[in-house]
């Protein structure tokens, strides 16, 4: 289909976004052309402002507009409890629960020999430096329960345990609201391993 050059360019740029195919890019571009000019301008400004004002926290490497980030600066949080996560979106997921009051460290990826990602490509060195100067006692490894996530967790545990930290891993098991009938063997096995006494 033919489009005027500016529209074609917009479609091309939207098509570069993750999860957006050519058809969706076209739909979004045509939608953006139909909305009032102020709305389109507000969207463009929001993108530019977010780009300009967002950076990585120099302590935990989460996305932030202040450095250190609000979590790292907060004296009300438990600075003896540190959770290691893969990506900034995992911090957001944890914060949504409201049940964790410690601090975070974002690795920005996981080990993947297949993709050529080694420890030097992650924020592992920064984690070790940070642990040498902060009063952390327990480190919770909250990487995803995937092959790469597990490999990263085991690698971190092998680095941190000799340094006398209490290293823990988030529990694996059945998701709330699911059926045991549909769960796979590995998940059920993990759920059994992580069972606990009812209070």
């Amino acid at each position: 289909m033919y489009f005027a050059e500016p529209v074609a360019k917009l479609i091309e740029h939207l098509g570069k976004l993750p999860g957006i195919g050519p058809k969706t890019a076209q739909k979004l571009a045509l939608y953006l052309l139909e909305i009032p000019e102020e709305e389109a301008r507000a969207l463009a400004e929001a993108i530019i402002t977010a780009r300009k004002n967002t950076k990585y926290c120099s302590v935990c490497f989460n996305l932030t507009d202040t450095d250190p980030c609000a979590i790292c600066q907060n004296p009300g949080r438990n600075h003896r409890l540190l959770m290691v996560v893969e990506e900034p979106k995992d911090v957001a997921a944890m914060e949504r629960t409201g049940s964790f009051n410690g601090i975070y460290h974002v690795l920005h990826g996981v080990l993947s020999p297949i993709k050529g990602i080694g420890p030097e490509d992650l924020k592992v060195r920064e984690l070790l430096l940070r642990l040498s100067r902060e009063p952390v006692e327990e480190i919770i490894i909250a990487t995803n329960p995937t092959v790469e996530g597990e490999a990263t967790a085991m690698y971190l545990a092998s680095l941190l345990k000799p340094l006398n930290f209490k290293v823990t891993r988030i529990a694996h098991g059945l998701p709330v609201g699911s059926d045991i009938e549909y769960a796979d063997e590995l998940t059920i096995r993990k759920a059994l391993e992580g069972r606990r006494v009812l209070e």
Partner: peptide, 20 residues
């Protein structure tokens, strides 16, 4: 799932070997 290899997921050496 027909067959799982759970021991691979608790040992880095085995996981690396399976990855290779």
């Amino acid at each position: 799932g027909r067959e799982y290899f759970p021991n691979l997921y608790g040992n880095k050496e085995l996981l690396d070997a399976a990855g290779q």
